[in-house]
């Protein structure tokens, strides 16, 4: 089932349920932070993260180079898992897993 959730910055976040390993149903959420600049995408991620469950994966879309470096750094600092970052056509896809 596909559902849409809002966040503090007005960026769109698309959430869908998917098995992300293990028996529990975690959610994968996509946060569209394109067009925003640092720290906008990070703050948008945190807004959605606060409403998420442990195990959920959040993928931030950003065309801001600074956020592509800063979001993994933030995740490492506060103890969430940086799953990976990839760049496609000038858009970075930065995935963070909520671990606590």
């Amino acid at each position: 089932m596909l559902s849409y959730t809002g966040c503090h910055c007005g960026a769109s976040a698309v959430a869908f349920k998917a098995k992300l390993g293990g028996a529990t149903m975690a959610e994968k959420k996509i946060i569209d932070g394109r067009g925003s600049f640092c720290p906008g995408p990070l703050m948008e991620l945190i807004g959605v993260l606060k409403m998420s469950q442990i195990g959920d994966e959040l993928e931030v879309l950003s065309n801001d180079k600074g956020s592509a470096k800063d979001i993994p750094e933030w995740a490492h600092k506060v103890g969430h898992e940086h799953v990976g970052t990839r760049e496609e056509g000038g858009v970075w896809h930065i995935t963070v897993k909520k671990t606590k």
């Binding site: 910055c9 906008g40 703050m43």
Partner: peptide, 18 residues
């Protein structure tokens, strides 16, 4: 011009999220 996040929103988020 580049529509950076406005400072009032960031201050509010500092309170609400942090």
């Amino acid at each position: 011009k580049k529509k950076a996040p406005d400072f009032k929103t960031l201050f509010r988020q500092a309170v609400e999220l942090g």
